[in-house]
Design a protein around this nucleic acid. Structure first.
Lengths: 185, 185
DNA sequence: GCTCTTTACGCTGTTCGTAAAGATA
DNA sequence: TATCTTTACGAACAGCGTAAAGAGC
């Protein structure tokens, strides 16, 4: 049997939406011209024309109205643009988030605690955490509660453990990369 | 000068995020296995492995932890997953919206007519149109014939009705989203 | 040994850029 | 004519699938 050579037909759901084409389309609408969009996206004019035409074909509706002074979105194109604004916003947030992981504190967690905390089941909790996250290096430091909270807030520590009695009864905070807010015990 | 052959390096911003890879990654996390993700996405196992590895390389952080029973998201992978949920939601809405335009049953239609038109059976025609297309909002404006024609041409009106005697005997044009050109009576 | 993931490699489809042609004021 | 968009075509790249190799229980 010859190589099956893939199911090329479904890049995304039924429409062939891809980020590059969507980005190029956005540029075309914002620049009101394929020529300028080509320049802005550093792509050949012909490539942009083709991308948008093929997207229109797949969707089954015109997205741009062409005239000899440039282009203009149709009603469908405007609707698409509204979605693209939020789509690329989400994407931007995603990238920022991923950059944070890529940057410095990759696989390292700085933990700060004060002395009144560790008495209870803390060591076991720590051990289980390290077992389930073997690729993370834990750095443990002792501080006073106020400093710990500040460190977590400004990001010089990923985890802060403060005495339960000082701030909230029976509650210890584990603040992990600003994504997780976990109750410990 | 030889063909410049493109700036291949920047599919999206600095990261090479593309919808197919993101979708595949989502599948891998949800299925907790590349094998199952491959099956679900109808893609070769090797293709999935490569896609995810390359995305991790570009991002500069591990997204999956591999063991011999499958895969598991790292902290970075979990963060990415949270964004993907909203991203694909937006995309889903976009597709639904575009499908509506493809079917031709959506949105607003700006209609321009001049006074000499409506005398005849025009109101009945309009009523029947609105009855058969209940989800379309009709906006009606009065203009002179030349302006109407221009509006339809440049797209500020989807429908133009001009006096039969002025331009073509016994003919009124209904120009709909530049896709349909329908004779009205 | 079994199940999972990764790497190697040939091959095909995709997509670019250049260049020429069409369209419109 | 000048300025935009589209189409044609050759070439490079990207991405798939098969198959073999690595890893961990």
């Amino acid at each position: 049997m010859p190589p099956h050579q893939g199911l090329r037909h479904m890049p995304w759901s039924s429409f062939g939406l891809d980020l590059v084409t969507l980005r190029v389309f956005k540029a075309a609408v914002e620049e009101r011209s394929l020529v300028w969009a080509a320049e802005r996206e550093r792509l050949a004019l012909s490539a942009i024309s083709r991308r948008i035409s093929e997207m229109e074909a797949r969707i089954g509706a015109a997205l741009l109205r062409r005239h000899d002074r440039g282009v203009e979105p149709t009603a469908a194109g405007e609707a698409l643009m509204r979605h693209l604004d939020t789509l690329f916003e989400v994407l931007e947030h995603t990238i920022v988030d991923m950059e944070a992981f890529a940057a410095g504190h990759r696989g390292q967690i700085r933990l700060q605690a004060n002395l009144s905390v560790p008495a209870g089941s803390f060591p076991e909790e720590l051990a289980s955490f390290q077992k389930s996250h073997p690729d993370i290096d834990l750095y443990i430091e002792e501080r006073i509660s106020a400093d710990i909270i500040h460190s977590v807030q400004i990001g010089t520590a990923e985890i802060g453990l403060v005495s339960a009695t000082m701030h909230a009864p029976n509650l210890q905070l584990l603040h992990w990369r600003t994504d997780h807010l976990v109750e410990l015990r």
